[in-house]
């Protein structure tokens, strides 16, 4: 068995890093495929409620977002703590929703307009008053397919 001991210890061995780029590229491709580009900067903080009966939203190009939630804590001195509506990159009033819907609908092709979905991302501590106003405006704008964005939660009945 002595022949194994013949090897001389020659300091720290260099690790071969030639496959490191490949590994990083693999990670890179994974993230490119699995994630989507951020479109808007959120001006409101949103903790979505949990639900179990959720469906995945397919076809992202057909989806427009309405965000409702309180401004972040460090800006509440200026903006107040009441939930605000955010459309695209700015705060909005309920009456601006109709115009928003029309603009978003214009961007779609004729065939896709029927399938346009409004995804409502709403903070769970919001009161229903503002949500009802938004829903009323959406009805007026004839944007009837909506989606209440939620996280997947456990069954809370237990």
């Amino acid at each position: 068995m002595g022949r194994f001991k013949n090897k001389k210890q020659t300091g720290v061995q260099k690790i071969n890093t030639s496959s490191l780029p490949d590994i990083i590229f693999m990670l890179l491709f994974f993230f490119m495929v699995a994630t989507t580009m951020r479109e808007t900067t959120l001006l409101v903080t949103i903790t979505e409620p949990d639900a179990t009966e959720v469906q995945k939203l397919e076809k992202k190009e057909l989806v427009s977002y309405v965000y409702i939630g309180p401004p972040p804590r460090n800006r509440q001195v200026m903006l107040g703590s009441e939930p605000r509506i955010q459309l695209n990159d700015a705060f909005a009033e309920p009456r601006e929703i109709q115009r928003f819907v029309y603009t978003e609908r214009e961007a779609l092709s004729e065939a896709q307009r029927q399938l346009m979905t409004i995804s409502l991302k709403i903070d769970k501590n919001t009161r229903m008053g503002i949500v009802s106003d938004v829903k009323h405006e959406l009805r007026q704008a004839n944007a009837l397919r909506i989606n209440y964005n939620t996280r997947i939660g456990d069954d809370r009945r237990q």
Binding site: P21, F31, M32, V54, Y148
Partner: peptide
């Protein structure tokens, strides 16, 4: 490796992973 790292970090920062899930509903016509 450094170049790939740069790209990787760029994508980590600019993209989000959240998949849109929710309860689908249809509002009554106006």
């Amino acid at each position: 490796a450094d170049i790939a790292f740069l790209l990787l970090i760029f994508f980590l920062v600019t993209t989000t992973m959240d998949v849109d899930r929710g309860i689908a509903r249809r509002l009554p016509p106006p």
